[in-house]
């Protein structure tokens, strides 16, 4: 004969499991829309890429021969991939810090209470509304060797014109300048929002204490803005690693592969050379790079961030 407590215990565990099931079922139901979207556009492609990176493929991109890690071995030894990594790292270093410093400067200017601040805020954030293709074409004209406004300016003050997009030393810088210009709108807007969130009374209190503008900037604005700065840095860093459109329009990876950034290299490998296996291996490599950089950033950068 079972004791009463035993029976009670059993039925109560049954109730708990039933309740747990209900809980999970409703949780999954709520998550379903995003699970479907992520699966179709993210998880499936990611899985497929990983799968393809271990195969030799035919021209339709269908996996033929399993080659293990040979694709990875191949890309890590290929000189053009080394060049591509080097160009990407340089590109990130050119664009991210410069872009954020310029955006912060503009945001500080536009945050002042002056007449017409609204006008400048609109202007400064307007690059957000321009597509990559359109702005790249505009810069294509600016960089034009003979008709471009940049070279006309240089020659008018007595300098010699530069082949911005055709010289291996200048091409990456030119693409970087274009990218900085395009990113400013986004960074500016986020940073301005961060600045406007800082309590005005903090500055008034500092003013009464006699703190100068730069002292206030160093001791109040920058620390209070640190979560926003961290966010902007992370996002622009990832974006810089994934640059494609401006390279495609401005230089097509040239001259002599000096602007062949990783994503462009992946594109060429897959859709020009039809090497889907090595292209997938490059993609996985890029994914791991971004992942590691972002983890490092969270680990070391976030310590200096002050959250309210």
């Amino acid at each position: 004969m079972k004791s009463a407590t035993e029976i009670q215990g059993k039925s109560s565990t049954r109730i708990v499991t039933k309740w747990k099931f209900m809980y999970w079922r409703s949780a999954i139901l709520y998550l379903l829309p995003s699970i479907i979207l992520f699966s179709v556009f993210l998880f499936y492609p990611l899985g497929k890429t990983l799968y393809l990176s271990f195969f030799l493929t035919d021209q339709q991109g269908i996996a033929n021969v399993f080659v293990g890690f040979e694709n990875y071995q191949y890309i890590l030894q290929a000189e053009s991939f080394h060049k591509s990594i080097k160009a990407t790292i340089l590109f990130v270093l050119y664009t991210v810090p410069t872009g954020i410093v310029i955006s912060l400067f503009l945001a500080l200017l536009a945050n002042e209470k002056v007449k017409g601040a609204g006008f400048f805020r609109t202007i400064y954030s307007s690059t957000m509304g321009v597509s990559v293709a359109a702005s790249a074409v505009v810069w294509l004209f600016i960089f034009h060797p003979s008709m471009g406004i940049l070279n006309q300016l240089i020659t008018s003050i007595g300098g010699t014109s530069i082949d911005w997009l055709l010289h291996p030393d200048w091409a990456l810088v030119s693409v970087a300048v274009t990218t900085i210009w395009m990113n400013i709108g986004f960074s500016f807007l986020i940073l301005l929002g961060g600045l406007q969130n800082i309590d005005e009374h903090l500055y008034e209190s500092a003013k009464i204490s006699g703190a100068s503008y730069f002292y206030q900037l160093r001791r109040i604005t920058i620390p209070m803005l640190s979560p926003t700065l961290f966010f902007v840095t992370t996002v622009t860093l990832i974006n810089a690693f994934q640059t494609f459109g401006q390279v495609d329009i401005l230089t097509q990876g040239g001259p002599s592969e000096s602007t062949n950034l990783i994503v462009y290299s992946i594109y060429r490998e897959a859709f020009v050379n039809y090497q889907f296996g090595t292209a997938s291996a490059q993609s996985i490599f890029l994914f791991l790079c971004i992942l590691i950089v972002t983890i490092l950033q969270f680990k070391f950068g976030e310590r200096k961030v002050h959250y309210q």
């Binding site: 903090l202 008034e204 209190s205 109040i220 002050h306």
Partner: peptide, 18 residues
């Protein structure tokens, strides 16, 4: 404000949160 030799306490205290 800094030359008026005064101090001020604000309604929301205006303490520096960081």
């Amino acid at each position: 404000p800094s030359k008026r030799e005064l101090s001020m306490v604000f309604q929301n205290y205006a303490l520096y949160p960081h």
